[in-house]
Each structure stands twice: as structure tokens, then as C-alpha cells.
């Protein structure tokens, strides 16, 4: 059990440190929007995955109230989305997709390691490749929705689009 909580806590702290290092205080609103958007999406996706018996999470937060992986869906994935949004802001679509592929690969590797070495996650009818594909789609989607909610973040970036 200790390994599981160290793994999850360590991953969250690492992401938090990366975000704090990357994020300027002036972009707090943009980060909140991406975080909340990703949470909303992952809540539904995570619930569907468990409901259809694709994955199980034997060790989890709120073990009575939910069977989905609350820590990943509520904190880890939204933090990854924030980090992704900070890096791709004002970039071209091609660079955005390339970053999304890198982030998705890192997430899939993290998820595979978790499945292999801990009891946090069990793949029933699921694989790390599906994780890769899912995150590859969800990251640009979450950032796109966040840009719609706060349009000035996109305008400020697109004024000087980086390659």
C-alpha cells in the first residue's frame, strides 16, 4: 500500500513542481480553465471506463464512494493538461500535436509502470496503447475548450505565433 501512495503522491508532487516552475502568476486564470476542463472530461471518461469494465482500481481514494481512479482523474491528468497548455500556448497546430504525442507517450509509460509494479490499476479490457490514444485526443481537446472559454489567452499567443 505504501508503494502505491508514494507512487501517486510522488507523481503529483513532481507535476506540481513542474507547473510552478513553468507557470507565471499572471496566467492563473488560463491554468484554472484548463485544469477544470480536463477534470470535467476525465470524470466522465473515467466513470465510463469503470462502468464498462475496461479497467479496475483496487487501491484508490474514496474506496466506498467510487470505483474510479479519483487521484488520476481529479489531479494527475488535469495537472498534465495544465503543463501541456503552458508549453503549447501560441504554437502552431503541428507543434501542438507533436507535444501531445510526447505527453501521451509519457502518460502511457507512467500508466504501464503503475499497472506493472503497483496494484493501483488493473487493465481488464484495456491497454497502455489506449491510454496513449486517449490522452493524445483529450489534451488538445481540453486546451481547445479552455481557449474557447478564455479567448484572450489564444489571442495573446497567436499575436506572435511561435513555430
Amino acid at each position: 500500500m505504501l508503494t502505491e501512495w508514494l507512487w501517486m503522491g510522488g507523481s503529483f508532487l513532481l507535476l506540481l513542481m513542474l507547473i510552478i516552475r513553468q507557470a507565471p502568476f499572471g496566467r492563473l486564470r488560463e491554468m484554472w480553465t484548463v485544469l477544470l476542463t480536463m477534470q470535467g472530461i476525465k470524470w466522465l471518461v473515467g466513470a465510463l471506463k469503470v462502468e464498462f469494465g475496461l479497467e479496475a482500481f483496487p487501491v484508490r481514494l474514496f474506496p466506498y464512494a467510487t470505483h474510479q481512479d479519483f487521484a488520476t482523474d481529479f489531479a494527475i491528468c488535469p495537472c498534465i493538461a495544465v503543463l501541456y497548455a503552458l508549453l503549447v500556448r501560441g504554437r502552431t497546430m503541428r507543434v501542438r500535436l507533436l507535444h501531445a504525442a510526447c505527453f501521451a507517450a509519457a502518460y502511457a509509460l507512467w500508466s504501464w509502470t503503475m499497472t506493472r509494479w503497483t496494484t493501483l490499476q488493473v487493465h481488464l479490457r484495456w491497454s497502455s496503447w489506449f491510454d496513449f490514444a486517449l490522452v493524445l485526443v483529450l489534451l488538445p481537446l481540453a486546451v481547445r475548450i479552455a481557449e474557447w472559454i478564455v479567448p484572450e489567452t489564444r489571442q495573446a499567443g497567436s499575436a506572435e505565433t511561435r513555430p
Binding site: P24, G157, R162
Partner: peptide, 12 residues
């Protein structure tokens, strides 16, 4: 000089 400008500087 608010958020957009600050964000733009960081982005650049």
C-alpha cells in the same frame, strides 16, 4: 499591461 501582456511576455 495586464494578464495578456504578462502572458505574452512569458510566451515569447
Amino acid at each position: 499591461g495586464g494578464e495578456c501582456q504578462a502572458a505574452g511576455e512569458v510566451g515569447d
